[in-house]
Design a protein around this nucleic acid. Structure first.
Lengths: 211, 211
DNA sequence: GCTTTCCTCCCCATAATTGGGGATTTCCTG
DNA sequence: CAGGAAATCCCCAATTATGGGGAGGAAAGC
């Protein structure tokens, strides 16, 4: 029996969803609320397995509520539901530890599927959300391959020091080489990266994942 | 009618899956192959909507094949299937542009669902894979705002310029303010971020997502 | 053996940044 | 209205970075 707690401000959706979930085998709806003000208290009281949380509600937002819930009980699975596919919201929800993110749908079977998925330790993302997440993922980790540059080991080492914000003097000390040598390496790095200042080199190094 | 191309080295799975997909309304199986050697050629010939690709096959790996396919036709949706939940493989597949990633299952309905999801422009991730992706996502963006600093609009603007590698003079020009003012703003930024050089400020700005 | 690459170090001069002061205006809030 | 935050500007001095040379040694490849 999967114990569920529902937070949804839309009266119509809340009631129809409550009816459906309560009538589904294997699910037990502990309660349904129009706002997340007492979310933490309610989680403490009912010890649900899964919390179904609307992201936009009057008062405390779904994300804030989730963060608070996770703080007192990190075992509770939180399933975010929303009508919006806003990038920032998705991003924020995931960073706050959402176990799933579903777009509101008129098909209640989807809710049941998502609930069982997260209950079993997995995550559930609506297709459109999954696409967004994968796109964000790619943009973060796929580097531009057309501008490949090869730095020597020493140059990489120096560049890593630069990314840490170290001055020539500090780098010289850290690498056990002279100030002049650091200077030389950095001149070479600048030439290879086609930049002419430390900040530029640092940015380029980070976005090319050279460090 | 969704046109599908299947690559799967396991004879048993390939044949049973072929049978199921071919017999499903709305799907059209263009072909099923035991390896991805001629994947690009086959994609050119059959112009499928969705390619179902096993990740581990003799000869060319599913990821390499996908990369090649995407290169010649980025519109083709590629659905990766595997028995493994290996982090590296998942990571590599996503970075290479996979539209979905499903764990092999005895339930063929899951395949159909995944195929329709990616065909409609979404992505489909098996719950266990979705959990991995979200976990990776969180680990990348977790330590954000425990050290929250508030920069004024102007300071943010200047900081953004610094991230672009601009010098004081260039920033002054870009913001239509004097060199001295840029200097002042940067002094304030350094104090707020607890740094004392441009490279440090840039790194901190990027990792705190202030820009 | 010769060439190339990499790492090392130095000189010089100019340009840029940094840190310390201080000052004015505007705008907003208590 | 007083106080504060924000944005604007200036001076000065010290430090740091940048760009231009050159040069020697070690290792690897042809």
């Amino acid at each position: 029996m999967i114990r569920i707690l529902l937070f949804e401000d839309n009266k119509n959706l809340r009631e129809s969803l409550s009816l459906y979930l309560a009538g589904t085998d294997g699910l037990w709806l502990s309660g349904a609320y129009a706002n997340a003000t007492d979310a933490v208290k309610l989680v403490r009281k009912y010890q649900p397995d899964v919390v179904l949380m609307d992201i936009q509600m009057p008062g405390i937002s779904g994300i804030e509520a989730m963060r608070a819930i996770k703080k007192v009980n990190s075992e509770v699975k939180v399933l975010i539901q929303t009508v919006f596919e806003n990038d920032d919201k998705v991003f924020a929800a995931i960073c706050a530890g959402a176990n799933g993110y579903i777009i509101k749908t008129p098909k209640p079977e989807n809710y049941v599927q998502a609930i069982t998925d997260v209950y079993n330790g997995g995550s559930h993302l609506s297709p459109s959300i999954a696409a967004k997440v994968l796109a964000m993922f790619q943009s973060q980790f796929v580097m531009k391959e057309q501008t490949y540059v090869s730095l020597t080991p020493r140059e990489k080492e120096v560049l890593q020091c630069m990314v840490k914000g170290m001055s020539y003097k500090m780098i010289a000390d850290a690498c056990n080489i002279s100030f002049s040598t650091v200077h030389s390496h950095i001149k070479n790095i600048y030439e290879k990266l086609h930049v002419n200042s430390a900040p530029e080199a640092v940015v380029k190094a980070l976005e090319m994942r050279l460090v």
